[in-house]
Design a protein around this nucleic acid. Structure first.
Lengths: 236, 236
DNA sequence: GAGTGGTCTAGACCACCTA
DNA sequence: AGGTGGTCTAGACCACTCC
């Protein structure tokens, strides 16, 4: 594993924060000091520090120095694109995924618009039910552009589709647009989820794009109200 | 010189995208070409381009070049910290804010923990009701650390508190932690909102921090289900 | 004035893509 | 092979904070 010098410095400082050598309110060494310490140029050190700041671990203040922020922030780093598996492993939950339906279809005009492809384009549609701690609480409706993500099948869908895309197909995922809103429960929700009397779901609509800007996925994740949680750090 | 060279280059390219000179899929000039063009070093150009990419306007691809992304992305940039006013102006909504309560109080242990201050610390508590297109749909419960945000009053609360903090007090806001979840309606929701039969609200909990890492605010925004919307771009 | 982070420069070498 | 972005260097000057 060849990792950049910038990343080594990032990890090195992050470790000191994680293991408590550096604590909330502590001042870090100056950029010049860190340069000597790690035998790197100041620019390289700065890039590592910018990363730490962006991810909420430290805060630079001009003329004063850099300070470690509250360890709370570390727990908040579920931001960015994270797979369903990663998040729930982190939270120590028992999770199962069941593929309820796997259906190749041709895009109707509405779906074509959501996926930014032509009408009639081949699309793989998957319905998956997520069971957390014994209750069916999330219904995922996935639509993948078959031309971009070939070879999808039920087995892959029941494991991790993102792992398949990144490691088997070797594609790079770049960014995702998300919208979060609430909707009244529909027929599908009632069929697949344990609603426990709730009459709305939280819907996370997601369009995901490859490194070259092509959209390959549209997904609706329908969460039972009381099991939904989203966290985030927003920077000015 | 008020604005940095890096920022000038950023704006210059952004203009070309906004006014349609550069369109979805178009390739930008290379970093070296842009360096000559703007009489800047390659590093400076790169910093401007990194910003454009971070904000979802362009995508770099190693060995190929940089490409303009879909203009959809521009509309998605409600991310970051945005005030209630800004978002709704953008959406062309009619909006009113009514201050239902303004109450200086001393932090109990629970509130002190949420604000990261000592128990008994002076806190300004504000309840505000947001009316959108004639319906009361958002209840904001604000808690400001009085020592950091002095001089708050009802008038400021009914205008824009953030404007007061940044422009009157001259403080710099740095970042915010957000958590989004759903909760059953409580007594306050029923008293202040037009619930229209819904029995849950979407709660956005928010802790906001100054440039020096001090937390000055804890806020709960309680949204009526059917009027809640959140959008976002997540990058790998 | 000394020390900090913020910006910028000019140049080098590498990894990747398209010929 | 030539062009692209990715990383890194060594050094400069500025703005801000603190003593």
């Amino acid at each position: 594993m060849k990792t950049s010098k910038c990343n080594q410095i990032y990890q090195s400082i992050l470790n000191e924060i994680s293991n408590g050598k550096l604590q909330h309110g502590d001042k870090l060494d100056s950029e010049n000091t860190l340069s000597e310490h790690h035998q790197a140029s100041r620019s390289t050190v700065r890039k590592a520090l910018d990363l730490l700041q962006e991810r909420g671990y430290v805060q630079k203040i001009q003329g004063k120095g850099m300070f470690v922020l509250s360890p709370d922030n570390i727990e908040f780093n579920l931001g960015g694109i994270v797979s369903f598996q990663e998040v729930n492993l982190k939270l120590g939950r028992t999770v199962q995924t069941e593929v309820a339906e796997f259906l190749p279809l041709d895009a109707d005009p509405r779906l074509a618009a959501l996926l930014q492809v032509g009408t009639g384009e081949r699309v793989d549609h998957i319905k998956r039910v997520r069971t957390i701690d014994g209750e069916k609480v999330i219904l995922d409706l996935n639509y993948f552009v078959a031309a971009l993500i070939p070879g999808l099948d039920r087995d892959i869908a029941s494991a991790s589709i993102y792992h398949y895309i990144e490691h088997e197909l070797g594609l790079k995922i770049s960014y995702a647009q998300r919208v979060i809103e609430a909707q009244p429960c529909n027929e599908l929700d009632r069929r697949y989820l344990d609603l426990k009397g709730t009459d709305h779901v939280i819907v996370v609509k997601n369009r995901t794009f490859l490194y070259d800007g092509q959209q390959f996925e549209y997904t609706e994740s329908r969460h039972r109200l009381d099991k939904f949680l989203f966290s985030d750090i927003a920077r000015r």
